[in-house]
Amino acid sequence: MITLGLFGINMGPCAEPEVAARIAVLAEELGYDTVWAGEHVVAPSPRVPPSPIEPDLPILDPVVSLTYLAAVTRWVRLATGIVILPQRNPVVLAKQLVSVDVLSGGRLVFGMGVGYVEPEMRAVGMPMAGRGARADEYLAAMRVLWDDEKPEFHGETVSFSGVDAHPRPVQRPIPVVVGGHSASAHRRAVRHADGWYGFMLDREQTAAQVEALRRAGGDGLTIVVSPSERLDASVVADYAALGVDHLAVVPPARFWRSGSRVADFEEFVRANAPA
Protein backbone atom coordinates (compact mmCIF):
# COMPACT_ATOMS: atom_id res chain seq x y z
CA MET A 1 0.00 0.00 0.00
CA ILE A 2 1.34 3.43 -0.94
CA THR A 3 1.99 5.82 1.96
CA LEU A 4 2.02 9.62 1.99
CA GLY A 5 4.43 12.22 3.32
CA LEU A 6 4.58 16.01 3.37
CA PHE A 7 7.50 17.90 1.83
CA GLY A 8 8.65 21.38 2.90
CA ILE A 9 8.36 21.24 6.67
CA ASN A 10 11.31 23.66 7.02
CA MET A 11 10.59 26.30 4.37
CA GLY A 12 8.24 29.09 3.47
CA PRO A 13 5.69 29.53 6.26
CA CYS A 14 7.21 26.51 8.05
CA ALA A 15 10.41 28.49 8.57
CA GLU A 16 8.47 29.96 11.50
CA PRO A 17 8.86 27.57 14.44
CA GLU A 18 5.27 27.70 15.62
CA VAL A 19 3.98 27.06 12.10
CA ALA A 20 6.37 24.16 11.51
CA ALA A 21 5.28 22.56 14.77
CA ARG A 22 1.61 23.14 13.99
CA ILE A 23 1.89 21.60 10.52
CA ALA A 24 4.01 18.65 11.66
CA VAL A 25 1.57 17.81 14.46
CA LEU A 26 -1.34 18.15 12.05
CA ALA A 27 0.36 15.88 9.50
CA GLU A 28 0.91 13.28 12.19
CA GLU A 29 -2.70 13.50 13.36
CA LEU A 30 -3.93 13.08 9.79
CA GLY A 31 -1.85 9.96 9.20
CA TYR A 32 1.01 11.21 7.05
CA ASP A 33 3.89 8.75 7.35
CA THR A 34 6.73 11.28 6.94
CA VAL A 35 7.59 14.95 6.94
CA TRP A 36 10.44 16.05 4.66
CA ALA A 37 12.89 18.92 5.12
CA GLY A 38 14.80 20.16 2.08
CA GLU A 39 18.16 21.88 1.90
CA HIS A 40 19.74 24.85 0.18
CA VAL A 41 22.37 26.59 2.31
CA VAL A 42 22.33 29.61 0.00
CA ALA A 43 20.56 30.40 -3.26
CA PRO A 44 21.83 32.40 -6.25
CA SER A 45 20.73 36.05 -6.12
CA PRO A 46 19.30 36.98 -8.53
CA ARG A 47 17.86 33.54 -9.25
CA VAL A 48 19.46 31.77 -12.21
CA PRO A 49 18.85 28.29 -13.63
CA PRO A 50 18.98 25.62 -12.37
CA SER A 51 18.24 27.04 -8.92
CA PRO A 52 14.78 25.78 -7.84
CA ILE A 53 14.07 28.58 -5.36
CA GLU A 54 13.96 32.34 -5.11
CA PRO A 55 16.84 33.79 -3.08
CA ASP A 56 14.47 35.24 -0.49
CA LEU A 57 12.66 31.98 0.25
CA PRO A 58 13.15 31.26 3.97
CA ILE A 59 14.52 27.75 4.43
CA LEU A 60 15.88 26.39 7.70
CA ASP A 61 18.64 23.84 8.06
CA PRO A 62 16.98 20.43 7.70
CA VAL A 63 18.82 18.68 10.52
CA VAL A 64 18.13 21.47 12.99
CA SER A 65 14.48 21.64 11.88
CA LEU A 66 13.89 17.92 12.28
CA THR A 67 15.49 17.98 15.73
CA TYR A 68 12.98 20.65 16.76
CA LEU A 69 10.09 18.70 15.27
CA ALA A 70 11.18 15.49 16.98
CA ALA A 71 10.25 17.15 20.27
CA VAL A 72 6.67 18.00 19.25
CA THR A 73 5.74 14.80 17.38
CA ARG A 74 5.45 11.18 18.47
CA TRP A 75 5.64 8.76 15.57
CA VAL A 76 5.80 10.53 12.18
CA ARG A 77 9.11 9.80 10.46
CA LEU A 78 11.52 12.70 10.01
CA ALA A 79 13.20 12.80 6.60
CA THR A 80 15.87 14.97 5.02
CA GLY A 81 14.73 15.55 1.47
CA ILE A 82 17.52 16.05 0.67
CA VAL A 83 20.83 16.91 2.36
CA ILE A 84 23.43 17.93 -0.24
CA LEU A 85 26.08 15.58 1.08
CA PRO A 86 29.24 16.89 -0.68
CA GLN A 87 28.71 20.27 1.03
CA ARG A 88 28.87 18.72 4.51
CA ASN A 89 31.63 17.50 6.81
CA PRO A 90 30.74 13.79 7.01
CA VAL A 91 32.05 13.22 10.54
CA VAL A 92 30.08 16.17 11.92
CA LEU A 93 26.99 15.27 9.89
CA ALA A 94 27.12 11.67 11.11
CA LYS A 95 26.94 12.94 14.69
CA GLN A 96 24.10 15.35 13.87
CA LEU A 97 22.01 12.67 12.18
CA VAL A 98 22.56 10.16 14.96
CA SER A 99 21.43 12.83 17.39
CA VAL A 100 18.14 13.26 15.47
CA ASP A 101 17.64 9.50 15.37
CA VAL A 102 18.26 9.12 19.11
CA LEU A 103 16.19 12.14 20.15
CA SER A 104 13.28 11.03 17.97
CA GLY A 105 13.35 7.43 19.15
CA GLY A 106 14.52 6.08 15.80
CA ARG A 107 12.46 8.08 13.30
CA LEU A 108 15.13 9.51 11.00
CA VAL A 109 15.23 8.91 7.23
CA PHE A 110 18.45 10.23 5.68
CA GLY A 111 17.73 11.53 2.19
CA MET A 112 20.88 12.65 0.38
CA GLY A 113 21.96 13.96 -3.01
CA VAL A 114 25.05 15.38 -4.65
CA GLY A 115 23.78 18.85 -5.61
CA TYR A 116 23.42 20.64 -8.91
CA VAL A 117 23.50 24.41 -8.15
CA GLU A 118 27.06 25.56 -8.83
CA PRO A 119 26.88 28.98 -7.06
CA GLU A 120 25.74 27.23 -3.88
CA MET A 121 28.53 24.68 -4.05
CA ARG A 122 31.06 27.40 -4.76
CA ALA A 123 29.85 29.45 -1.79
CA VAL A 124 30.58 26.61 0.64
CA GLY A 125 34.00 26.04 -0.90
CA MET A 126 33.36 22.76 -2.70
CA PRO A 127 33.93 22.16 -6.41
CA MET A 128 31.22 20.66 -8.58
CA ALA A 129 33.75 18.29 -10.13
CA GLY A 130 34.04 15.00 -8.26
CA ARG A 131 31.04 15.64 -6.03
CA GLY A 132 29.51 12.24 -6.75
CA ALA A 133 32.60 10.30 -5.72
CA ARG A 134 32.95 12.56 -2.68
CA ALA A 135 29.35 11.87 -1.65
CA ASP A 136 29.87 8.11 -1.97
CA GLU A 137 32.95 8.26 0.20
CA TYR A 138 31.30 10.51 2.77
CA LEU A 139 28.36 8.13 3.10
CA ALA A 140 30.67 5.15 3.51
CA ALA A 141 32.58 6.97 6.26
CA MET A 142 29.34 7.91 8.02
CA ARG A 143 28.14 4.31 7.98
CA VAL A 144 31.41 3.23 9.62
CA LEU A 145 30.81 5.72 12.44
CA TRP A 146 27.23 4.55 12.83
CA ASP A 147 27.72 0.81 12.60
CA ASP A 148 31.28 -0.40 13.28
CA GLU A 149 32.49 -1.50 16.70
CA LYS A 150 35.87 0.17 16.10
CA PRO A 151 35.33 2.92 13.49
CA GLU A 152 38.20 3.41 11.05
CA PHE A 153 38.10 4.80 7.53
CA HIS A 154 40.74 5.85 5.02
CA GLY A 155 39.68 7.44 1.75
CA GLU A 156 40.77 10.20 -0.57
CA THR A 157 38.69 12.95 1.05
CA VAL A 158 38.06 11.68 4.60
CA SER A 159 40.22 9.60 6.91
CA PHE A 160 40.08 8.72 10.59
CA SER A 161 41.23 6.06 13.05
CA GLY A 162 41.64 5.78 16.79
CA VAL A 163 38.31 7.52 17.38
CA ASP A 164 34.80 6.51 18.33
CA ALA A 165 31.38 8.17 18.42
CA HIS A 166 28.54 7.39 20.80
CA PRO A 167 25.65 7.01 21.08
CA ARG A 168 25.04 4.73 18.15
CA PRO A 169 21.78 5.27 16.23
CA VAL A 170 18.55 3.67 17.41
CA GLN A 171 17.97 2.33 13.89
CA ARG A 172 20.54 -0.18 12.75
CA PRO A 173 20.95 0.75 10.00
CA ILE A 174 19.67 4.28 9.49
CA PRO A 175 17.61 4.17 6.27
CA VAL A 176 19.24 6.07 3.40
CA VAL A 177 17.41 7.42 0.35
CA VAL A 178 19.32 8.81 -2.65
CA GLY A 179 17.78 11.64 -4.65
CA GLY A 180 18.44 12.40 -8.30
CA HIS A 181 17.20 11.61 -11.79
CA SER A 182 20.48 10.74 -13.51
CA ALA A 183 21.96 7.34 -14.27
CA SER A 184 24.67 8.00 -11.69
CA ALA A 185 22.00 8.72 -9.04
CA HIS A 186 20.31 5.43 -9.91
CA ARG A 187 23.60 3.55 -9.56
CA ARG A 188 24.31 5.30 -6.26
CA ALA A 189 20.91 4.31 -4.89
CA VAL A 190 21.38 0.69 -5.95
CA ARG A 191 24.90 0.39 -4.55
CA HIS A 192 24.67 2.45 -1.37
CA ALA A 193 21.08 3.07 -0.27
CA ASP A 194 17.76 1.60 0.77
CA GLY A 195 15.64 3.83 -1.43
CA TRP A 196 15.49 6.40 -4.22
CA TYR A 197 13.76 9.79 -4.28
CA GLY A 198 12.45 11.50 -7.41
CA PHE A 199 11.41 15.13 -7.02
CA MET A 200 8.52 16.78 -8.90
CA LEU A 201 7.78 14.00 -11.35
CA ASP A 202 4.54 13.26 -13.18
CA ARG A 203 3.40 9.70 -13.86
CA GLU A 204 5.08 9.46 -17.24
CA GLN A 205 8.39 10.72 -15.85
CA THR A 206 8.06 8.40 -12.87
CA ALA A 207 7.54 5.40 -15.12
CA ALA A 208 10.73 6.21 -17.00
CA GLN A 209 12.71 6.68 -13.78
CA VAL A 210 11.43 3.46 -12.22
CA GLU A 211 12.28 1.52 -15.37
CA ALA A 212 15.81 3.01 -15.38
CA LEU A 213 16.22 2.06 -11.73
CA ARG A 214 15.17 -1.49 -12.45
CA ARG A 215 17.64 -1.74 -15.32
CA ALA A 216 20.31 -0.56 -12.87
CA GLY A 217 19.39 -3.38 -10.48
CA GLY A 218 17.14 -1.45 -8.12
CA ASP A 219 14.23 -3.88 -7.82
CA GLY A 220 14.47 -3.97 -4.01
CA LEU A 221 14.64 -0.21 -3.46
CA THR A 222 11.93 1.80 -1.72
CA ILE A 223 10.67 4.29 -4.33
CA VAL A 224 9.77 7.78 -3.08
CA VAL A 225 8.35 10.42 -5.42
CA SER A 226 7.25 14.00 -4.93
CA PRO A 227 4.49 14.21 -7.54
CA SER A 228 4.15 17.22 -9.80
CA GLU A 229 0.49 16.38 -10.40
CA ARG A 230 -2.59 17.15 -8.35
CA LEU A 231 -3.50 14.04 -6.40
CA ASP A 232 -6.76 12.19 -6.23
CA ALA A 233 -7.47 8.54 -5.53
CA SER A 234 -6.98 7.46 -9.15
CA VAL A 235 -3.69 9.36 -9.53
CA VAL A 236 -2.35 7.87 -6.30
CA ALA A 237 -3.36 4.42 -7.57
CA ASP A 238 -1.48 5.07 -10.81
CA TYR A 239 1.72 5.93 -8.92
CA ALA A 240 1.31 2.79 -6.83
CA ALA A 241 0.89 0.70 -9.99
CA LEU A 242 4.16 2.14 -11.28
CA GLY A 243 5.95 0.75 -8.23
CA VAL A 244 6.03 3.88 -6.07
CA ASP A 245 6.00 3.08 -2.35
CA HIS A 246 5.73 6.58 -0.92
CA LEU A 247 4.52 9.97 -2.18
CA ALA A 248 6.02 13.06 -0.52
CA VAL A 249 3.45 15.73 -1.40
CA VAL A 250 4.76 19.20 -2.29
CA PRO A 251 2.48 22.18 -1.52
CA PRO A 252 1.86 24.50 -4.51
CA ALA A 253 4.31 27.35 -5.14
CA ARG A 254 1.86 29.94 -3.85
CA PHE A 255 2.43 28.67 -0.31
CA TRP A 256 6.12 29.61 -0.47
CA ARG A 257 5.45 33.28 -1.24
CA SER A 258 5.37 35.91 1.47
CA GLY A 259 1.92 36.72 2.69
CA SER A 260 0.54 33.22 2.19
CA ARG A 261 -1.94 32.26 4.88
CA VAL A 262 -1.15 29.46 7.28
CA ALA A 263 -4.82 28.50 7.27
CA ASP A 264 -4.61 27.88 3.51
CA PHE A 265 -1.51 25.75 4.01
CA GLU A 266 -3.34 23.74 6.65
CA GLU A 267 -6.27 23.24 4.28
CA PHE A 268 -3.91 21.83 1.64
CA VAL A 269 -2.46 19.40 4.20
CA ARG A 270 -5.96 18.27 5.18
CA ALA A 271 -7.14 17.96 1.57
CA ASN A 272 -4.21 15.70 0.62
CA ALA A 273 -4.19 13.58 3.79
CA PRO A 274 -4.14 9.80 3.58
CA ALA A 275 -7.59 8.31 3.11
Rank of each mutant, 00 (worst) to 15 (best):
I2A: 02
L4D: 01
G5D: 03
A15S: 15
E16A: 01
V19Y: 04
R22F: 00
I23F: 01
A24R: 13
V25H: 02
V25T: 08
Y32N: 10
D33V: 00
T34H: 13
G38A: 15
V41S: 07
A43M: 15
P44G: 01
S45F: 12
P46Q: 12
I53T: 13
E54S: 12
E54R: 09
L57D: 12
V64C: 09
V64A: 13
S65C: 11
L66N: 09
L66D: 07
A70K: 05
V72I: 10
W75K: 15
V76K: 11
V76I: 15
V76W: 10
R77T: 13
T80S: 04
G81H: 15
I82K: 10
V83A: 09
I84Q: 05
Q87W: 07
P90K: 13
V91K: 08
V92S: 14
L93V: 09
L97H: 04
L97I: 08
S104D: 08
G106H: 00
G106F: 01
R107K: 08
L108R: 08
V114N: 09
G115Y: 08
V117R: 06
V117I: 10
E118H: 05
R122A: 14
V124F: 12
P127W: 11
G132F: 04
G132H: 05
A133S: 11
A135V: 03
A135F: 03
D136R: 12
D136N: 14
E137C: 03
Y138T: 05
Y138A: 13
Y138V: 05
A140I: 12
A141S: 07
V144Y: 10
W146I: 12
D147C: 07
D147Y: 07
K150W: 02
P151C: 01
E152H: 02
G155P: 09
S159E: 15
S161W: 02
G162K: 04
A165M: 04
H166Q: 10
R168V: 14
R168P: 10
P169T: 06
V177P: 03
V177H: 02
V178G: 08
G180N: 07
G180K: 06
H181W: 03
S182A: 13
S184N: 06
A185T: 05
H186W: 10
R188A: 13
A189W: 06
A193Q: 09
G198C: 14
M200C: 14
D202I: 14
R203S: 15
Q205T: 00
Q205Y: 00
T206I: 09
E211V: 05
L213H: 08
L213T: 06
L221A: 04
S226R: 13
S226L: 14
P227V: 06
S228H: 03
S228I: 02
E229I: 12
L231D: 12
V235C: 05
A237L: 01
D238W: 14
Y239W: 09
Y239R: 07
A241H: 07
D245E: 11
D245V: 07
H246K: 08
H246G: 06
L247I: 00
V249Y: 01
V250A: 06
P251T: 03
A253S: 13
A253Q: 12
W256R: 13
W256L: 15
S260M: 04
D264V: 01
R270T: 07
A271N: 06
